[in-house]
Simulated scan of single mutants.
Amino acid sequence: MQKLLISLGLLVLAAGLFWPWLARIPFGRLPGDIHIQRDGFDLYFPITTGLLVSAVLSLLIWLFRR
Rank of each mutant, 00 (worst) to 15 (best):
M1I: 11
M1V: 08
Q2F: 08
Q2P: 05
L4E: 04
I6T: 14
I6E: 06
I6V: 15
I6K: 09
I6C: 10
L8I: 13
L8F: 04
G9F: 02
L10I: 05
L11T: 12
L11W: 05
L11I: 10
V12G: 07
V12T: 14
L13N: 11
A14V: 11
A14W: 00
A14R: 01
A15Q: 11
A15T: 04
G16F: 02
L17F: 05
L17P: 01
L17I: 15
W19R: 02
W19D: 06
W21G: 09
W21Y: 15
L22A: 07
L22Y: 08
L22P: 08
A23F: 09
A23M: 13
A23I: 05
R24I: 12
I25C: 12
P26C: 13
F27V: 15
F27A: 12
F27M: 12
G28A: 05
G28D: 00
R29Q: 15
R29H: 11
P31C: 07
P31Y: 07
D33G: 06
D33C: 03
I34H: 04
I34Y: 03
I34C: 10
I36Y: 08
F41H: 10
D42H: 04
L43C: 00
Y44R: 09
Y44T: 11
P46I: 07
P46F: 05
P46C: 01
I47D: 08
I47M: 08
T48R: 13
T48P: 01
G50W: 03
G50S: 09
L51D: 02
L51F: 05
L52F: 02
L52H: 04
L52M: 11
L52E: 06
V53M: 09
V53L: 06
S54G: 12
A55N: 06
A55V: 07
A55E: 07
A55K: 07
L57C: 14
L57W: 13
S58F: 10
L59M: 08
L60D: 04
L60T: 12
L60S: 03
I61D: 07
I61E: 04
I61K: 00
L63W: 12
L63M: 11
L63D: 13
R65I: 11
R65G: 10
R66D: 14
R66V: 13
R66S: 15
R66H: 14
